[in-house]
Amino acid sequence: MRLFPRIAKSQPESQDKAAGAAPTAHLPDKPATAASPEPDKRRGLFAHLVRGLAKTRENFEKHLKQFVGRSHVDEKCFEELEMALLEADAGVTVTEQLLDRLQQQVREKKLGPEQLLPALSAEVLQLLSAAAAPFAYPEKGSLRVYLVTGVNGSGKTTTIGKLAHLYRREGRQVILAACDTFRAAAVDQLATWAERTGAQIISQKAGSDPAAVAFDALQAARARQAEALIIDTAGRLQTKVPLMQELAKINRVVTRELGRSPDEVLLVLDALTGQNALSQARLFKEAVPLTGIVLTKLDSTAKGGIVLAIASELGIPVKLVGVGEKAEDLVEFDAEAFTHALFHYS
């Protein structure tokens, strides 16, 4: 049984639409591309992503094979695409939206089966590009503040370690604020990263007020003329109201002292997360002004489709992706490269 009896259901209304509404491009023929990095960097990123999304792509290819050799697009083709999208964690809502648009294109442009995947890929690219925004890297001589949030075990501290490594390699002065004063040994974990990367760390004893640590760290960052202050926060489930209030307080204190919002307020999201990621993004956004998402653990088993749901339903851009365990494996998100890696059609 399928979720949405696509062909059968929409055949009659497709007649109406074809007759009535002009086939204005619901989607531009060439979707707007996000600002792309230089070719060199781009290839590196692409290679990472191709590796990272191998499983998802194979899965699409597997489903795609099902309709090779068919003479026209039928219910079976959509069924295969639906399964592929669902299996990639795209979620029911976005899957339905994407397939509806695809359906429209099939009607208007008379697409054949072999054109389905490129068309879907264009839709996905458009979705991701619409939500794209550049990452604020630290600059010489001024202070940039990064507030890093997320649920337990999403990879916040590791992401911060990687960021510190990248900034330090560029010669930036980096201060880490150990605001996870709750979890056992969280400060030690961050201290290890500080030591490895040559960043400085500001911490207080376990159980102290995280907002106070952030305040201290900001004062220290100014006094020492640091260029990047990265604030590590304790992992918290988005439904725990007091903990979300605590997070909001950290942001408030930093915003007040800084005179502006932190330059990046990042939600670190495990790429293996299913539909709960939507709830995470929504509720964290209610607590703090999220500027973007860091998608971690996007290695060769992750699905990554949840990114589509978040972009579509909440418009929060993905800014960075972690595609491996090494510090260099944290790269800026690029909608085009991501989409290519996801579908990899030729």
Partner: peptide, 12 residues
């Protein structure tokens, strides 16, 4: 296993 895991849970 993390309860928030998506479709990949079966493969893991």
């Amino acid at each position: 296993v993390d309860a928030m895991t998506g479709q990949e849970a079966v493969n893991i």
